[in-house]
Every structure is written in structure tokens, then in C-alpha cells.
Simulated scan of single mutants.
Amino acid sequence: MSAVRWVLGCLGVLVGAYGAWLALTRQDLVQLAEVALWLAAAVAVHDVLVAGTVVGATLVGRRALPRPWHAPATLGLVVWGSVSVMAVPVLGRFGARTDNPTLLDRPYLATWLALTLLTLAAIGVAGLVRSRRTEA
């Protein structure tokens, strides 16, 4: 098992180094600065918005939900929050252009709502299964 992890780790480092080399050799300084800004903003959004919301909701959920529901609710919130943050550009239709109707031509809101309902259903099923296991 340890050898597999080591090989996968080395492979990941090599792929990352190749990507960094491509970025540094094929982009100008302005593009690299924009990438750095985007990465910093992504970390800030995750750490402040997603992680903060998950921690806060988890603390509230621990008081409001029975113990067997804690893990499913937290996991569901992490999945839903991460996907929701990633969906912001398409839900906001950023980049849509009137001269090209093929851009952003999918029902993104309906898809996001379907994911939200599926996540809630998964939380419900997992919570019920865990509740029944603790009763037995």
C-alpha cells in the first residue's frame, strides 16, 4: 500500500511540475498575475464562505439535529456548498453573449435545484439509516 501511495505521489508531483512549466513558459506576466489572483480569491472564498458556512451550520445542526444525523448533514452541506460555489458563474450567466446564443444554453438553475434535492434526499436516507442502526 505504501509503494502505491509513493508512486501516485511522485506521479502527482510530476504532473504538477509539468503544468507549472507550461504555465511559466506559455503565459506572460499579466496572465500569471491573473492566475495568482484567481487562486488567492478561490482560497479566500473557500476558507471564508464555504468553510465558515459549514462550520457555522454544523454547530447549529449539532443542537438542532439528533446525533445520527450530524455526519450526513455535514457531508451533504460540504458537497452542496462546494458545488454551489463552483456553479456561481453559470448560475449568474457570467460570459453569456447575445451574439452567441450557444454559450450557457443549458438549464443550469434546474440542474442545480435537482442536485440540491438529490443532496437533501441522500442526507435524509443516510440520516434515517443511521437512526435505525442506533435504535437496534
Results as ranks from 00 to 15, higher is better:
28 D>I: 00
30 V>E: 11
23 A>T: 09
60 V>E: 05
47 D>K: 11
71 A>W: 06
55 V>G: 04
74 T>V: 15
44 A>W: 08
45 V>Y: 06
45 V>F: 09
42 A>P: 02
47 D>E: 15
52 G>E: 02
62 R>M: 15
28 D>E: 04
58 T>I: 01
29 L>N: 08
82 S>E: 12
25 T>S: 15
78 V>Y: 07
48 V>R: 14
40 A>C: 13
69 W>Y: 03
42 A>S: 11
61 G>L: 04
77 L>Y: 02
64 A>P: 02
53 T>M: 14
28 D>V: 00
23 A>G: 15
25 T>P: 05
46 H>P: 00
44 A>V: 14
21 W>G: 06
48 V>N: 04
49 L>I: 13
55 V>Y: 12
26 R>E: 08
56 G>Y: 03
74 T>P: 02
39 L>K: 10
58 T>N: 07
29 L>H: 08
57 A>Q: 09
69 W>N: 00
56 G>N: 03
39 L>A: 08
24 L>H: 09
50 V>E: 02
78 V>C: 15
72 P>G: 00
37 L>Q: 09
49 L>K: 05
59 L>N: 04
62 R>Q: 09
32 L>M: 11
27 Q>A: 07
39 L>M: 09
37 L>C: 11
56 G>M: 03
56 G>I: 01
61 G>W: 02
26 R>Y: 05
72 P>L: 00
78 V>G: 10
35 V>I: 08
53 T>P: 04
21 W>L: 11
22 L>N: 12
81 G>Q: 05
63 R>S: 10
49 L>S: 12
57 A>W: 10
22 L>M: 12
46 H>I: 03
49 L>H: 10
23 A>P: 03
69 W>C: 01
73 A>W: 02
73 A>R: 00
75 L>N: 02
32 L>T: 03
60 V>C: 06
79 V>I: 15
62 R>E: 07
45 V>C: 07
48 V>E: 04
41 A>H: 13
30 V>D: 08
55 V>M: 07
59 L>R: 15
54 V>I: 15
47 D>G: 10
81 G>L: 04
43 V>A: 10
60 V>G: 04
48 V>L: 14
22 L>H: 11
54 V>Y: 12
50 V>W: 03
34 E>G: 05
21 W>T: 09
55 V>A: 10
58 T>S: 15
49 L>Q: 05
66 P>Y: 00
56 G>F: 04
42 A>T: 07
73 A>F: 05
25 T>N: 12
46 H>F: 13
57 A>I: 04
48 V>A: 14
26 R>P: 03
33 A>K: 14
63 R>K: 14
51 A>R: 14
49 L>P: 06
63 R>N: 02
25 T>Y: 06
40 A>I: 09
27 Q>W: 08
73 A>K: 00
62 R>P: 01
33 A>F: 07
51 A>S: 10
70 H>N: 00
46 H>G: 06
69 W>R: 02
45 V>D: 06
75 L>Y: 03
65 L>W: 00
27 Q>S: 15
53 T>F: 11
45 V>P: 02
47 D>S: 13
60 V>M: 07
41 A>T: 07
30 V>M: 07
48 V>H: 06
72 P>Y: 01
37 L>K: 13
73 A>C: 04
46 H>N: 07
44 A>I: 11
38 W>T: 08
68 P>D: 00
54 V>H: 14
49 L>W: 13
69 W>H: 01
42 A>N: 09
44 A>K: 11
66 P>N: 01
82 S>M: 05
65 L>I: 00
72 P>T: 01
55 V>H: 12
80 W>Y: 13
73 A>E: 00
